[in-house]
Computed example of a mutant assay.
Amino acid sequence: MNAPQLSIIVPVYNEEAGLPALFSRLYPALDMLAQKRQLQYEIIFINDGSRDRSAAMLGQQFEARPDTTRVVLFQNNFGQHMAIMAGFEYARGEYIITLDADLQNPPEEIDALVQELVAGHDYVGTIRTNRKDTLFRKSASRLMNHLREKITHITMTDQGCMLRGYRRRIIDLVGKCNESNTFIPALAYTFATNPTEITVQHEERFAGESKYSVYQLIRLNFDLVTGFSVVPLQIFSILGMLLALAAGSLFATLLIRRFIIGAEVEGVFTLFALTFFLIGVMLFGLGLLGEYIGRIYQQIRQRPRYVVQAVLEKP
């Protein structure tokens, strides 16, 4: 096969109910784009250890469109970002687009990203308009985006949208990073020299539920913050000094009151509250330190980030 100019990477995990709708919209959109821009494309589906019929359906789609379809089958579930990393490894195009399989980001928006890549931008971020998520999720997302930007200094407006475009140079640099845990949009952004952002539409999830639980979202944010900044550790160092200073001042105050006023028990509960507060701060600080140590531990084991069971592609 001639190498395509455009590669679309689609991670798939338990998307049996939504795959037919994805196929019915993605291929026509790309066929129209290919005719309009006179380029060839490929779609790389990465089955991330799905437990439903997703793998079988991807195999059927490969048989139906072998010239434009490739399927990478993971042995187990390794997570969305590892699936995208595998897609980067198998992608052959100069322009690479990542797309979720749940149709919340319309495939018809791919043309707008390709336009920016062809214009010379090496990284195209997206900002979702009219988001269909719950109010809690949208509010939490805005808060975390703002917090992450302050800590990591990575200025991406909408860090949760995986519909993004990259040029080959960025993908090659990302491939040289052997990090066990990473946040791909942020990692790629650090290598970009001419990034841009565009607005894209956002739709209701076609079928099923989000694969990200509250715990997984928290884990993702920890990966982003600890993977790109040591500011949290510095904050706790400063906080530790301030608390030590406050504790010393409180001790001096109580000692002076002891000699001037005499023994008193009214402040016992205040001391208990301060003690529990300090214990909480110390435990949180230890947990944060453990996050960094855990990342080091996972990295030095040098285990494979993912295991590919099979690849369906035209010889």
Rank of each mutant, 00 (worst) to 15 (best):
G49Y: 04
G49W: 01
S50C: 09
R51A: 14
D52Q: 10
A55F: 04
A55Q: 14
A56R: 15
M57R: 07
L58N: 03
G59W: 01
G59S: 12
F62H: 12
F62Q: 07
F62D: 08
F62M: 09
F62V: 04
R65D: 11
R65F: 10
D67E: 15
D67M: 13
D67W: 14
T68M: 12
T69V: 13
L73K: 11
L73D: 14
F74T: 00
N77G: 05
F78M: 03
F78W: 09
F78A: 04
G79E: 02
M82C: 09
M82H: 14
A83N: 09
A83W: 04
I84S: 01
G87N: 06
G87R: 01
F88W: 02
A91R: 07
R92E: 15
R92T: 11
G93Q: 10
G93K: 08
Y95W: 15
I97V: 15
I97T: 07
L99S: 01
L99F: 07
D100E: 15
D100H: 08
D100I: 02
A101G: 08
D102E: 09
L103I: 09
L103S: 02
L103C: 05
L103R: 02
Q104L: 02
Q104H: 01
Q104N: 10
Q104I: 11
N105Q: 14
N105V: 02
E108G: 06
E109I: 03
E109M: 11
V114H: 03
L117E: 07
L117C: 05
V118A: 05
V118G: 00
V118N: 02
A119M: 11
D122K: 01
V124P: 03
T126S: 06
T126F: 00
T126M: 02
